[in-house]
Amino acid sequence: MIALAIIALLTIAAASAAFLLRNLIHSALLLVGAWAGIAAFYLWAGAEFVAFAQVLVYVGAVSMVVLFAVLLTRQGATTAPVEYDSLKRAVLGFITAGGVGGLLFGAILGSPLDVHTANPAPAVSVKELGLLLMGPHAAALLIVGVLLTVALLGAVVIAAVDKPEDAP
């Protein structure tokens, strides 16, 4: 419980700081920290395989794509003053998020949740997971594979410069 509270606090602190900072690179790196915190939560819950997959995909791959995108779309100084328009958006955003948060908190604290397994954490070995993936969920696995291929091709087509005069 204490470990969970520490993980939760650090993750939420990193995520909030990421959205409050004005330096995009710092934001991206802090978000990577938040993703690593989520992986730590998976480890705490006993989902080893998912935790390592989370680190591999988010800390290894998505973070790189994000950082490359930040560098490719960078424009000069980042210290321009905040416009009124953005400020209005921000306030509205915070009000909405606060409302949603209040609703969720009320629902969670108000509903009777019966906890089935406490300790030790249930063990699903990697082998069982693999058999589940290849057996009952093979169709989903295939579809995810096709989806990833299509997304890869789509991303390349969208981001590629088609004609020389289009180049920046």
Binding site: L29, V32, E48, F49, F52, A53, V55, L56, V59, G60, A61, S63, M64, L67, S125, V126
Partner: peptide, 20 residues
């Protein structure tokens, strides 16, 4: 670890961030 190999590669990818 049951997923030791995956752990090894997950730990290895983190060094890319440090290089960045």
């Amino acid at each position: 670890l049951d997923a030791a190999l995956l752990y090894f590669f997950a730990a290895g990818t983190a060094t890319e961030l440090a290089i960045f």
